[in-house]
Amino acid sequence: MAKLHEQITSGRVVYTTRAGAQVCGDSRKVLAELPETSVDLIMTSPPFPLLRQKEYGNKDQAEYVDWLVEFVEAAKPALKETGSLVIDIGGAYQKGRPVRSLHQFRALIRFVDDLGYNLAEEFYWHNPARLPSPIEWVNKRKWRAKDSVNTVWWLSKGDRPKSDVGKVRTPYSESMQKLLKDPSGYYRPKKRASEHDIGTAFGIDNGGALPSNLLSIPNTESNGFYLRMCKELGFESHPARFPAALPEFFIKMLTDPGDVVVDIFSGSNTTGYAAETHGRNWLSIELDEKYAARSALRFLEGRTATDVAAIYEQMLAVNSQVDVEPTVLF
């Protein structure tokens, strides 16, 4: 399979791995260069419309939906008919008011009504480790509860996207484990009015329970290699990182090994790293050059700080030249 990054001219390839490439550029332009129906999954988390402006480029709430729709529209031609777009969008309060913004819901309606996507299913990412916020309405006045859930829209191009929830089973509950050890002794269901006997179905161990659409995943990475190395080398880490378990869930459920996964707001490139780990091909796109370059640290685990610094400096030197092949990490 020809690698997608080899066809890109509107962005600069910062580094490559065996399975993918990190590109620095505007996702709208890069997506336009990808072959039609070449991507199996776009998994991303755009900058949220927060009240405080962040260095990584969050948009004001008033313009956020129109801005985001441009990227989602540009993504559609590249998706296969069986492909999916999964987009994590956090909530926010309106400026100076203890009432919620509706940006993520307005965006969803635009995606479906204006762009022709299907809402395959809505997911909710619960981060039990999130700190209470906003300070004014939660901590200080005690008017609102802690906001610890993001909406995650699973959109599909066609009615029947590739999907298998059997690949993302969750551990059985304690009671279910007991039932599996002794089905007849633990549970004796009565025959239903339809005379359907469900007793034997409960004794089958399928390797775990089917997941729900509430994903409880703590975002507690504080001592991972990426953050440790950023700190040791004096780099500013990306301030808005989602945990690897979030993209991993959708990568495993919606793609197969060898499929193509794209992230159009890659940040520290958690999605690309998860895709590489699970044998998928990947392309990540990030507008900010320093974040795009520093995301290479995710793929250098096991190296010493001296080695990482040398590779990073070499990557910057190569990227400053014209018509030179990008840095190959491995």
Rank of each mutant, 00 (worst) to 15 (best):
P183Q: 11
L180T: 06
S156D: 06
L180M: 07
K178L: 10
L180E: 07
R188H: 14
G166Y: 09
K157N: 03
R169L: 07
S173A: 13
G166M: 08
D182W: 06
S156I: 03
P161D: 00
L179C: 08
V165H: 00
K178P: 03
R169I: 02
T170N: 11
E174G: 04
R169Q: 11
D164P: 03
D164R: 15
S163T: 10
S163V: 14
K157A: 00
S156W: 05
R188N: 10
K178A: 12
R160T: 11
G166N: 14
P171G: 13
V168F: 05
V168P: 05
Q177R: 15
E174L: 12
L179M: 13
P171L: 06
Y172M: 04
K181V: 03
K157P: 06
P171C: 06
S163C: 12
D164S: 15
P161N: 09
T170W: 03
L179N: 01
Y172G: 07
S175M: 11
L179D: 00
K181A: 14
D182E: 09
R160H: 09
K167A: 11
D159A: 13
Y186G: 04
G185T: 10
S184G: 08
D182A: 15
S173D: 07
D182G: 06
R188W: 14
T170Q: 14
M176L: 12
M176R: 15
S175F: 00
Y172C: 10
D159T: 15
L180Y: 06
G158P: 02
K181P: 01
G185S: 05
R188G: 09
E174M: 07
G166T: 11
K167F: 09
S163Y: 12
Y186W: 08
M176T: 15
Y172A: 01
S163L: 13
G185R: 03
Y187I: 02
S163D: 03
S173M: 00
G158K: 01
L180H: 07
G166K: 15
R169G: 10
P183L: 05
P183M: 06
L179Y: 07
S173Y: 02
Y186N: 12
L180P: 00
L179W: 02
D182Y: 05
